[in-house]
């Protein structure tokens, strides 16, 4: 249990630092940035008992990103939303029969992981850019940013997950 707490706190700090110092400044094609801090929400233990701390920590990681990037509360809102929706998205991606208590994201098949991550990332980015731009006149712009950034984030997340799972085995 202690080990889980330490590894989650380390992951929290490393992901926030990586996000604000490196991935917020990629500006691919002028405006695309991946939001890899989502991996914290992906990796957080799948335990029914810890759902409330999970919501708090997701809010906290979003808030940290918001403080660093002066973006109001858009990252906090998007992170809390996907943290709350994670069980629902898991049921869609992995099926009902899964034993969630022992589920490890690195042990799932590529197809399941792909579905899970893309649903999570699309929801997150949609909320993020809707709140950030916040104008009905710019729906096309919101969707464009959501889809292209989501592809970018998804690719990086898949790379990260395969890198770190290989190290452990």
């Amino acid at each position: 249990m202690n080990n889980t707490i330490v590894s989650n706190i380390t992951r929290f700090i490393i992901l926030v630092l990586l996000q604000v110092t490196l991935f917020n400044h990629i500006d691919f094609l002028g405006y695309l940035n991946p939001y890899i801090y989502i991996l914290f929400i992906v990796y957080f233990p799948f335990d029914k008992e810890t759902r409330i701390p999970f919501l708090f920590f997701s809010f906290l990681i979003g808030l940290s990103i918001d403080i660093f990037s002066d973006s109001g509360g858009v990252h906090s809102a998007a992170s809390v939303a996907i943290a709350y929706l994670r069980p629902v998205i898991m049921r869609w991606a992995f099926g009902l029969s899964y034993d969630y208590q022992t589920l490890k994201i690195s042990k799932t098949t590529f197809g399941q992981r792909f579905n899970f991550l893309s649903l999570l990332i699309l929801t997150h980015h949609l909320i993020l850019f809707t709140l950030e731009i916040f104008s009905f006149a710019q729906v096309v712009n919101i969707l464009k940013k959501t889809i292209f950034s989501a592809i970018f984030t998804l690719i990086l997340c898949l790379i990260f997950i395969s890198l770190f799972s290989r190290k452990r085995s």
């Binding site: 919501l55 809010f59 109001g72 509360g73 809102a77 809390v80 939303a81």
Partner: peptide, 12 residues
């Protein structure tokens, strides 16, 4: 939590 986040967003 979601309303706090929305509050900060709209304030900004």
């Amino acid at each position: 939590l979601f309303s706090i986040a929305l509050g900060i967003t709209f304030q900004s």
